[in-house]
């Protein structure tokens, strides 16, 4: 029995430091946000705990609903695009050819820089006075900066999504590539000897085995897009914009008594993000099970 006790102590001692750090720094802030949103914020003289007033208020406000819709829109479109394009890129670069090491090195560069680098590039290229507008002018396609389509600071959000894609297509590429690299070439060769064309061997043998990687890449991309602040703040419209931007705006209002409302925004978006990811993972598991792979 002492062996078992020693084992238990070893497990607890090993996990303790990380658990303490994450409990204090991750669970703690969430509890604070939750308490505030439920009306327990003595520092702002808000002491109506427990109340769902703030939740009711934001759920009733059209401003919140619009923001939520845009949050989903800005999150899902780049997730779809980066998953498809990044996977295709990984498949296209599956075979090492001359120079592919260098190519891969550069493709990884956007992954390791802050998202703000992408934002800076999008501004330089796609602003109304940016390089693309100048190129179109030089080609006599537009006559003034006003003719250039509004890509930045508009609710269409193309600037936001371009900045996401700048980092997320390469990110998906890296994740899927490494899953492909782990695959045995001989598996594919077996498929070829069994009469599969190169494309069919790829589709039936290699792609199914990289799906877990594709799923996890797209989950990470979605999770990021759903919650980010700086990109929509810099490249989006003042309104409508995403829930995180809206939450920080409310939080920074002069009237600090509205801060619990900001906290309600945060809790709601946390729940939404969790639910979406849960449903996504569940659908994926179900699909795997229907194939009999789990």
């Amino acid at each position: 029995m002492t062996g078992r006790a020693r084992r238990r102590i070893a497990i607890l001692a090993g996990l303790a430091p990380a658990a303490v750090v994450l409990l204090a720094l991750f669970v703690g802030p969430l509890v604070v946000a939750l308490a505030h949103s439920l009306g327990h914020a003595p520092i702002y003289r808000v002491t109506e705990f427990p109340t769902l007033r703030y939740y009711a208020a934001i759920l009733a406000s059209s401003r919140f609903r619009v923001s939520l819709a845009y949050t989903f829109y800005y999150a899902i479109v780049p997730t779809l695009l980066s998953t498809i394009v990044g996977t295709l890129l990984a498949l296209a670069m599956r075979r090492p050819v001359r120079g592919s090491r260098l190519l891969v090195f550069f493709f990884r560069l956007p992954v390791v820089v802050p998202y703000l680098v992408g934002a800076g590039m999008v501004v330089a290229l796609f602003a109304n006075g940016g390089l693309l507008a100048r190129a179109l002018f030089a080609l006599d396609l537009i006559e003034s900066t006003g003719d250039f389509p509004r890509i930045l600071f508009s609710s269409g959000g193309w600037g936001i999504m371009l900045a996401y894609l700048f980092k997320q297509i390469p990110f998906t590429f890296v994740i899927v590539s490494s899953a492909l690299a782990a695959e045995d070439v001989e598996l594919e060769q077996v498929a070829r000897t069994l009469g599969a064309s190169p494309l069919r061997a790829l589709w039936h043998v290699i792609v199914p085995r990289t799906i877990p990687a594709i799923i996890s890449a797209s989950l990470l991309v979605f999770a990021f897009n759903f919650q980010t602040y700086e990109i929509p703040y810099l490249l989006g419209a003042t309104f409508p914009n995403t829930v995180p931007v809206e939450a920080l705006r409310v939080f920074n209002l002069i009237d600090v008594r509205r801060r619990p409302e900001a906290m309600a925004y945060l809790i709601v978006i946390t729940l939404f993000s969790g639910v979406v990811m849960f449903l996504y993972l569940r659908a994926y598991r179900k699909w795997e099970r229907s194939k009999g792979r789990v």
Partner: peptide, 16 residues
């Protein structure tokens, strides 16, 4: 921590 929005953690952390 990877899934939960960083804003949610960040503002609570700020107050803490």
């Amino acid at each position: 921590p990877i899934i939960v929005p960083q804003v949610s953690i960040g503002i609570g952390m700020l107050l803490l």
